[in-house]
Design a binder for these strands. Structure first.
Lengths: 146, 146
DNA sequence: TTCCACGTGAGACACAGTATCATGTAGGAC
DNA sequence: GTCCTACATGATACTGTGTCTCACGTGGAA
């Protein structure tokens, strides 16, 4: 459960660093998109990001390309909200799952908590060999329950 | 589209029955879409169904309306494949999860297998009150492992 | 400083899903 | 069986999301 919300001028610093590590160019637009992603407190839609970016003179295509890039590096993940809409969340690279607060929209990383045993059980019972899975959790965060 | 006279002429019978039970009209197009859904052996995309339906003279809008209807009755569920594409699967109404074979595309319903305890643990640890969740499992079914 | 592969913005495009509206029809009333 | 009306339908326009193309710009190694 991590909320990395620094107010540094370059909140997207770790995203930029990851780009660099992966051998991608550190261009102005990419830095800006990284900052916008990091500044988002919770999940965000492509439209949100495109709108923010447009105000800084960054084009739609670049935003989608950057999201792609971050996604391929595991820094951003796509989630599907209960209503069926898409959103993205910034996250750390290790395998984990998201708990999304339906009230405030924030997303929280949660660890395995025994899920792998459950998947093992399912596989064992049904003969299915599990190679990937996706768990999304929706509910109310501690703050919103008050 | 060949309506194989061998097996049940109305593969979508239980879908039609569910529509009836819920007080919806049993129109020709709806019966046809129900049959098409039931005939699909695994997940299918909206495009698949639209194409099948078009050959029978059924319009796009009607296909989407029917999917909506089946979804609202819990007879069809929307899933998101690992690649990010959308698909639909026919399923029973009780709460359950899908295991999707990445080789043959068939989907299998799996039961809880301890997931609710895992969600309880997560909630307990983090103070998050879980109200909904979605678990999708990808891998190889028993047949495709051979 | 130079140079070029990679990145960019603009805008056309593709596709999924929704909305609108005139027409058609299921199925209850009689 | 027939009538009638609320609901369903097909055609088509529209919206939103994401991709592709292409000429131009630029990061960063040499």
């Amino acid at each position: 459960m991590t909320r990395a919300a620094t107010t540094a001028t370059h909140a997207g610093g770790h995203l930029v660093a990851a780009l660099d590590r992966a051998g991608h160019r550190l261009t102005g637009p990419r830095r800006s998109v990284a900052d916008l992603v990091a500044a988002r407190d919770g999940h965000f839609t492509a439209a949100d990001l495109v709108e923010d970016a447009r105000r800084q003179g960054i084009g739609r295509a670049t935003v989608f390309r950057s999201i792609d890039l971050f996604t391929s590096l595991g820094l951003v993940e796509r989630v599907d909200l209960p209503g069926g809409e898409h959103a993205y969340v910034a996250c750390e690279t290790a395998h984990h799952h998201h708990a999304i607060c339906t009230s405030c929209g924030r997303s929280f990383d949660v660890d395995d908590a025994g899920l792998s045993e459950v998947l093992g059980t399912i596989g064992h019972r049904s003969g299915f060999r599990v190679t990937a899975h996706r768990l999304e959790i929706f509910g109310l965060c501690a703050a919103c329950q008050r």
